[in-house]
Design a protein around this nucleic acid. Structure first.
Length: 103
DNA sequence: CGAGTGACCGCAA
DNA sequence: ATTGCGGCCACTC
């Protein structure tokens, strides 16, 4: 069912991420059908819709991204605003906060 | 159409 | 423990 472009799928998934929950580039790419396209997710995020909750995207180590629009502080602030605790740009209880689609 | 790029991931020294 | 390198795929110009 991937008639849409990869970007479209990522945008759909990102929009489906529950509030107060976080996901990783690798997982997002994997659920999109390309587990090795983690970089794509980052790239798409850079070129994608600025209104989507990209701040819920973190790397495999649960750490916040580096080039987020506004800086990691802004991303951490958004996460904290949604109830996600962050310490030194790293998501607390990241493994538990990690959202996974019903695949 | 071709080449470069990237907010990553995993492994090696 | 830290640092460096390559691979990987789709997107943009």
């Amino acid at each position: 069912m991937n008639n849409k472009t990869f970007r479209r799928t990522i945008e759909e998934l990102i929009a489906k991420v529950p509030l107060g929950r976080v996901t990783t580039y690798g997982d997002l790419a994997a659920m999109a059908g390309t587990p090795r396209a983690a970089r794509l997710v980052g790239g798409i995020a850079h070129y994608g819709d600025p209104e989507l909750p990209w701040h819920r995207l973190v790397n495999r180590h649960g750490r916040l991204a580096s080039g987020y629009h506004g800086g990691r502080d802004a991303q951490a602030a958004h996460l904290a605003n949604e109830g996600v605790e962050c310490r030194e740009h790293t998501v607390v209880n990241f493994e538990e906060r990690r959202w996974r689609p019903n695949y």
